[in-house]
């Protein structure tokens, strides 16, 4: 395997990871506020179809990206209303949201499965893109890749360096304390859920606009679930989410390259790897409460009732 192949694998790894980066970072913020939204897959696929429809109808790719985010946020609003305002069970609602999203996207996408779209193209920055190795790896992606990295920096800063992030984390750790201090738990959680929905929608938009510029039913193919697993795998740390996304993306790409060169690892094993890794992390978390559980939001998945506090 020569240097060129390795660069190509790394390059493909970045693009394969971007949908996971968007969706998992969004879910991270949601879970940090103490809400577990299992509807990532559903929000992603609705984001994918809505952005595709807008791209086809208007021809404006950036408008399409925004539409993807808005569609994801609207989906999460359904989830927010049911779990935060009506205080229904989050796990059940999230699962329902995924099932609904897959069906709904198929329904509104019926007329769009046959359309070829000229998707978002990779940038070519003069001079920078021409630098050997680094130019290919760092400066010749499509704009959404850079958006994902910016969002990552923004979230890492927000969660650990800003007052807003502190409040968000406090809400996830102890909603009653946050409530006692005068913060509106429900409002904060609503905002977090909406942000998570938007990010899942963007992840979907990346799939249908840049990665495979087409619409096909069920095209997210479980990436929303991997994003969910990734948050646990990363023990709720944004940096680890990013590394984990590259790792999960890279494993798939590397496996395809290895098949071509004759190195054998069963593909089924690699498909189950993200979930296996997540289970291992869960086992470690439950064994060693002091070190790892610190990151897990203490009130994750528990509804908050204003009147009871």
């Amino acid at each position: 395997m020569n240097t060129e192949t390795i660069i190509l694998i790394l390059f493909a790894t970045v693009t394969a990871s971007i949908p996971l980066v968007f969706a998992a970072l969004g879910e991270l913020v949601v879970e940090k506020s103490g809400v577990l939204n299992l509807g990532v897959e559903g929000m992603m696929i609705v984001g994918a179809i809505c952005s595709f429809i807008v791209a086809v109808e208007t021809g404006q790719l950036w408008l399409a990206v925004i539409a993807g985010g808005v569609a994801g946020a609207l989906m999460s609003l359904i989830f927010g209303f049911i779990t935060l305002s009506l205080m229904a069970n989050q796990v059940a609602t999230g699962l329902a949201l995924t099932i609904f999203g897959i069906g709904f996207s198929a329904f509104i996408g019926q007329e769009y499965s046959s359309i070829a779209l000229d998707g978002i193209k990779a940038l070519s920055i003069p001079f920078l893109s021409d630098i050997p190795i680094a130019g290919k790896l760092l400066f010749s992606h499509d704009p959404l890749v850079y958006l994902a990295i910016l969002v990552f920096i923004g979230i890492a800063w927000f969660l650990y360096r800003s007052r807003g992030g502190l409040i968000l984390r406090a809400t996830g750790e102890s909603p009653s304390s946050a409530h006692a201090l005068g913060y509106s738990v429900i409002k904060i959680r609503y905002l977090a859920v909406l942000f998570g929905g938007m990010m899942a929608g963007l992840g979907g938009a990346y799939l249908s606009l840049a990665y495979t510029p087409l619409w096909a039913e069920g095209m997210t193919s479980g990436r929303g679930w991997i994003a969910l697993a990734l948050v646990v795998f990363a023990t709720w740390r944004p940096g680890r989410v990013l590394i984990g996304a590259f790792l999960f993306g890279g494993v798939t790409i590397a496996q395809f390259h290895m098949q071509g060169t004759g190195i054998e690892i069963p593909a089924q094993f690699l498909t189950m790897l993200p979930y296996l890794a997540t289970i291992v992390v869960l086992v470690i978390i439950s064994r060693d409460a002091n070190t790892t559980r610190m990151n897990a939001p203490a009130s994750l998945g528990q509804p908050f009732h204003n009147e009871l506090h």
Binding site: T5, L8, I9, A12, A16, T212, S221, F256, H257
Partner: peptide, 15 residues
């Protein structure tokens, strides 16, 4: 799985 088919095609073309 359009995503995986895309990745597989890219890998082969890259080779």
């Amino acid at each position: 799985d359009p995503g995986r088919e895309r990745e597989a095609s890219d890998a082969l073309i890259d080779q």
